[in-house]
Structures are given as structure tokens and as C-alpha cells.
Design a protein around this nucleic acid. Structure first.
Lengths: 230, 230
DNA sequence: CGGACTGTTGAAATATATCAATATTTGTGG
DNA sequence: CCACAAATATTGATATATTTCAACAGTCCG
């Protein structure tokens, strides 16, 4: 959302402790644990989920490299969300005192962080609208387009296809539907030549049709808005 | 989420222009309009809604006095949400340049604003989980308890009852269900002696039963966390 | 090589939407 | 203050997307 000066980058690089690796399936942080810090995701896919009293799981976000994880919980005494490694991952831990000092000393970085949080909030608003008012197929189209956009920025998309280390179980918890229904929807979308899933690779065969299915267009944040502190 | 010093309060008081009144039903800001600023709600109820391509409306939040309105759109060139007055309202407009200067000059206030945004984000995560995985009745219980808590803080609750200027149409768009279904759910909840609605007054007759119905407990933010800049 | 994930299929059950009509309340101009 | 129109609430019948349950097939990984 803005260019970073060399100084900004230097501050960011020294926020955290040495990188930590987690294997696939590992829980990086469990909900209910005291909130001591946040995490910067360097490599791999991570899901952030909350658990309902009924025991059901809602995945709130699929995190990709570059994302900050667990930041909503910084305002709570204990973590709201469970962070689970969907692939092998590398993360850096940043404690909250460090974040607080950064907010005080670096208004520009603090404001950029605020902007990132507002973007996450918009994504949630869109997800809520999509979940409530549309069919699961349309919702799935929206999710796949969002992933396509984010993975493109990382250079992980080739011919509208990308590695997709997400089981139908996870996909269901993300959309708020059962894994069985997820399966039926993916098959229907394959029959309609919208997608093809092969060996954990997701091919988006017809981007335009997916965009027409999607209940909302993608949102584009401002780059370097005039009110952002220098 | 923290005590404000006299200086903090003085900064806040001078953020905005003179108060503006809107009649019931007025649109304070339409989605798609250029984002020139945010709004501080002084009095009245306001809904924040986004519109899907299908024309359906998702109300994202019911705003009460003290809330800042329209802040998610500050990262976008044009507003994402439509702000509608549900009652007569008084608001104060704050332009984005003023917000930017505040972020640069008042790290403590800026961080408190960030915390408020994170709380909104948690509310949305909970709403998404509730919408996806629970029945409309449970979802309604969660919504009513949240309103009860927020209105209590304003001193607007007496004997677990409060003025409720919200039509079933609005309530439906908030929960992502039709107004007709909203009606049936309210009647069922009345029959079960959970609530009583009379002349735009909502009586919560059995808080404990509502809490048991609610799929998630209410979240309580930290007060004055140790990492908050002084 | 074998067990544990993961994906697939079918049939029955259910929450919610849709359509269509009517009743009730609210606000407003005369 | 009344009359009336508009907004809001209510009811019933039918349609539909999604869940649930149960079983089985495939595939991955140690």
C-alpha cells in the first residue's frame, strides 16, 4: 500500500526473533493461549480459525507469506484464533512490546499496519455478505478469485493455475459449509469447465465466468494515500 | 479501552467540524462516493451496509453513539459501505488529512484507534462464524446480547429492556435472512419467553437462556494493555 | 505395505427462501 | 385530531440449498 524507505525496511527486519519452522498440521498458536505477540509469516500457508461452542470450526482466513498472523488477538487477554500450518511453514515471532514501541516511534509504519487491518476488515465484511446472501458456488468463486489475486502478487500463479494445499474439509470450514457439499460444488464447477483440480493444483479455467459468478468485485486499496504520514 | 488524558480529550474534541443532523432514513454517505473522511456518531442509530451485485443488502454493523463510522473505506478510493440513519442522528465529519495528522502526532490515540478497529474485526469474525454454522435463532440471540452490552455502556438499558428502532427488514439484512424468516424467529423466541417486543421496545426476558443459545461468548478487550504507548 | 487421511456417492431430513396475500401500525397532510 | 397512504408485520403453502447419515473408494505417507 506504499513504498517503504530503507529505514522502514530496516525497522521491519529487526522486529522479530529468528525464524521458526513448523511441519504441516502443526498448531502455531492455540486459541485461549495468552496473547504475548504476533507472527510474521515468511513461508507456507496458515489457517486462522475460531471454534464455536458447538465445537464447529470457522476458518477466518488463509494466510500467505508476508501476512501478519494473530493480530486481532492483540486487544484480548487470550488468543481468539488458532493458527494452524497447512503446509510446512516459517514464521517470525514479534512480541507486543516491540509492536507498541514501533507504533510510538514509526507513525508511518503504524499507519500502514492500520491500513492493512482495515483491508482485512473489508475482506471479512465481503465474506459475511457473500456467506449470507449467495449460494455456495458463488461464494467459492469469490474465494478462488481472491486467492488468485493474492498468489499472483507472490508470483505463485502460472496460466491461472496455482498449488492448492487445501483439503475439502478446510475449504468447507472456510466457506461455512460441509466438506461433502464442498465436494459436490467443486465437481459441479469442474463439469461447467470453470476450474480443474488435479494433484493439488487448482486451475482457474474461465476467469471471466468466475468473475461473473462472484457476488462482489475485488477491492483495491489506495496506494500511498495523501493522508498517510511520510 | 483506556483512560484518556485531558490533552487526549482536547485533541479528540477538535478533530471535527460542527455537528450535522440527519432525519430518520437519510443516507449519510452512499457507497461509491469518494472517501473524503470519516464520521463520529454523536447521537442516534446508524446502519452500515454493503450492496451485492444481485442488489441484496448486507448490513455489516449497527452503529451507536460514540462509534466512528465509515473508517474501513479510508483505505479505498471510494466508499465501500452506505451509512443510513435509522433514527434522527447527529454526526461530526472528520476529514482524512486530520486523521493522518492525528496518527503522526498522537501515537497513543492512533494505537487506541487501531485497537478499536481490531475489535470490530473480531466482531466480524464472530458474525461470520455465527452466520455460517448456526441457526438463525442462535444468531439472533448473539446479536441481541451484543446490543444489550453496547447499549448498557451508554446507560440505555433498564431491566434488560431497550428502545429498538430496527425494523424486521433491517434485522433480516443484518443476519443475512429474509424479513419473513426474521418475523417467524422473533415470534418463536417470544413464545419461548426469551424476548418480548412491544412498541419498539426490546425486552430480553431470559438473559441466561439467550447466553446459552448464543454460539459464542462476548469478547472483552484489554483495558490499558502494557504495550499501549503512553 | 498398511493405516490414516481424503475424496465420492446416494437417500432422507431440515432450515430457510420464495411467492402471494392480508393485517396492523406509523407518520403525515388537511 | 382525523383520515388515509405508506411502511411494517403476519400468515400459509410450496420450493430449494444444504445438512446429515452411512457407506465406500482412493491416495498419500511413514
Amino acid at each position: 500500500m506504499a513504498d517503504l524507505s530503507d529505514d522502514d525496511v530496516a525497522v521491519f527486519r529487526h522486529l522479530g526473533e529468528p525464524p521458526i519452522s513448523h511441519p504441516r498440521g502443526a498448531i502455531i498458536r492455540q486459541e485461549g493461549a495468552p496473547t504475548v505477540g504476533v507472527y510474521l509469516l515468511i513461508d507456507g500457508w496458515v489457517s486462522s480459525a475460531i471454534t464455536l461452542r458447538s465445537g464447529q470450526r470457522q476458518i477466518q482466513k488463509l494466510h500467505l507469506p508476508g501476512d501478519m498472523l494473530g493480530t486481532p488477538s492483540m486487544v484480548l487477554p487470550t488468543a481468539a484464533d488458532t493458527l494452524t500450518a497447512l503446509t510446512e511453514t516459517t514464521t517470525i515471532f514479534v512480541d507486543l512490546d516491540t509492536m507498541g514501541r514501533m507504533f510510538a516511534a514509526q507513525p508511518r509504519l503504524a499507519t500502514l499496519f492500520l491500513m492493512a487491518v482495515q483491508m482485512e476488515r473489508l475482506t471479512l465484511i465481503d465474506a459475511l455478505a457473500s456467506a449470507g446472501h449467495t449460494t455456495a458456488t458463488e461464494n467459492m468463486a469469490h474465494l478462488l478469485l481472491d486467492l488468485h489475486r493474492r498468489l499472483s502478487a507472490l508470483g505463485w500463479v502460472r496460466d491461472d493455475a496455482f498449488a492448492f494445499p487445501v483439503t475439502q474439509d478446510v475449504l468447507g470450514d472456510l466457506l461455512g459449509i460441509t466438506a461433502i457439499h464442498t465436494n459436490r460444488i467443486l465437481q459441479e464447477m469442474s463439469k461447467r469447465r470453470l476450474i480443474r483440480v488435479e494433484q493439488r493444483i487448482m486451475h482457474l479455467l474461465d476467469m471471466n465466468a468466475l468473475r461473473e459468478l462472484s457476488p462482489l468485485p475485488m477491492r483495491k486499496p489506495l496506494f500511498e494515500p495523501s493522508w498517510l504520514p511520510r
